[in-house]
Computed example of a mutant assay.
Amino acid sequence: MASWFYASEGKQQGPYPEGQFRDLVAQGIVRPDTLVWSEGMAGWQKAAEIPGLIGGGGAPPMMPAGGPPMMGGRGYGGGSLSADFSAFGLLGRAIVFVIGMLLVIPAPWVAVWFYKYVTSHIQVPGRPNFGFAGQPMDIWWALMANALLTYAGATGISYAPLLATIVNAFLAWVILRWIVANLSSNGERLPLSFQGSAIGYVGWYLLMLISTITIIGWAWVLAYWMRWICRNTEGTRREIVFSGSGWQILWRTVVFSLACSFIIPIPWMLRWYGNWYVAQFGLVDRAAAAARGY
């Protein structure tokens, strides 16, 4: 039986079984001007343009197979990601995540639990039911070692903090590759992989730490680091881009930090910052991305 998707307020809804979807039509939730898509259609169409969908009748005609093109991409077949984190949901999970990492042994389980929550609240145009398929024991050693090294700075060995930083950067590279490889849609892993080198990642990691000396320079380093990560994520016909600027990252981080100093606003500020950060990632046609300088 066919599954249907529809667009509402710029977000993709679905999938819905044929019967349930026609109930949405009958209830007026899906209107004649609503963009809809089902397997077998070449692209999104207004519901009124599909024979038999509005006002009864038979099923829509089948068209060449393929996934729905990304919405909101100005003709590039792309669009921006969006997130709908809840204030206390994100904060509560972030606290448990930090505690789990500090306790080391629970690190693999709390990491997977946290990544599943985050991805389930991110909407990727053309990728319904975005999620994370990784399992705690996939790279348990990297997650536990990453957590354990947070204590290295407390040792009395002078070279331990620097060595721990480099090793931690390498482990972060391993974890990033694992996360990208386990992103999923409708329960199926996406054919994505992170191809950035370990040396390159460690270099960006160290540059990020050094840039904190400048007080504000870290924000621009972070913006370019995100662009480097996006350029080195492969497996999709569309380019993954990061559009946030150093200035945008800086002023939002300052506002976030100042507001959080009052304690009470923390849940809402974390949600505000997290939703904005996710929205800076998008998908565009690779040729268009090159033309726009990404």
Rank of each mutant, 00 (worst) to 15 (best):
N129K: 14
I210Q: 01
L53H: 01
M41D: 00
Q248I: 03
F114C: 06
R238P: 00
F262H: 06
H121V: 02
F281P: 07
L190V: 10
T34I: 07
M1R: 03
L209K: 09
I210T: 08
N146Y: 13
A65D: 03
I95W: 09
E9Q: 13
A47Y: 02
L103I: 07
G57R: 08
I264E: 06
G235V: 09
I122H: 09
M70L: 12
I249H: 09
S211E: 04
I50M: 08
G52L: 04
G282S: 12
S3D: 10
L192H: 11
I95D: 04
S185V: 06
T212R: 08
T155Q: 06
P64A: 00
I122L: 10
F170K: 07
W109N: 13
A107F: 07
S257Y: 12
N146V: 00
M70E: 09
V255D: 01
A2N: 03
I95S: 04
L283A: 07
I266L: 15
V255W: 12
M63I: 00
Q195A: 15
G57A: 07
F5N: 06
W4G: 00
N232Q: 12
A94M: 05
N186C: 12
A279C: 04
P69R: 12
Y273V: 00
S82M: 08
A42M: 01
R177W: 11
Q248G: 15
G100R: 05
P60M: 02
V104A: 07
R127Q: 13
V30W: 07
L149E: 04
L24K: 13
W141L: 15
G43K: 13
R227M: 09
G10A: 11
V221R: 09
Q135E: 15
G77T: 06
F85D: 11
Q45K: 14
G10V: 11
N186G: 14
P265D: 04
N186A: 14
T233G: 08
P68H: 02
M101A: 05
R177Q: 15
I95E: 07
G78V: 04
Q248H: 09
W4R: 01
M137C: 10
L35R: 15
Y201S: 05
A259P: 01
G235D: 09
L209C: 03
S8A: 13
A154F: 14
G153P: 02
I50C: 02
M70Q: 11
Q195G: 08
G10M: 12
A94W: 03
A198G: 07
G67D: 06
I215D: 01
I216N: 05
R286F: 00
V110F: 09
L176K: 12
S38T: 12
V254R: 09
A288L: 03
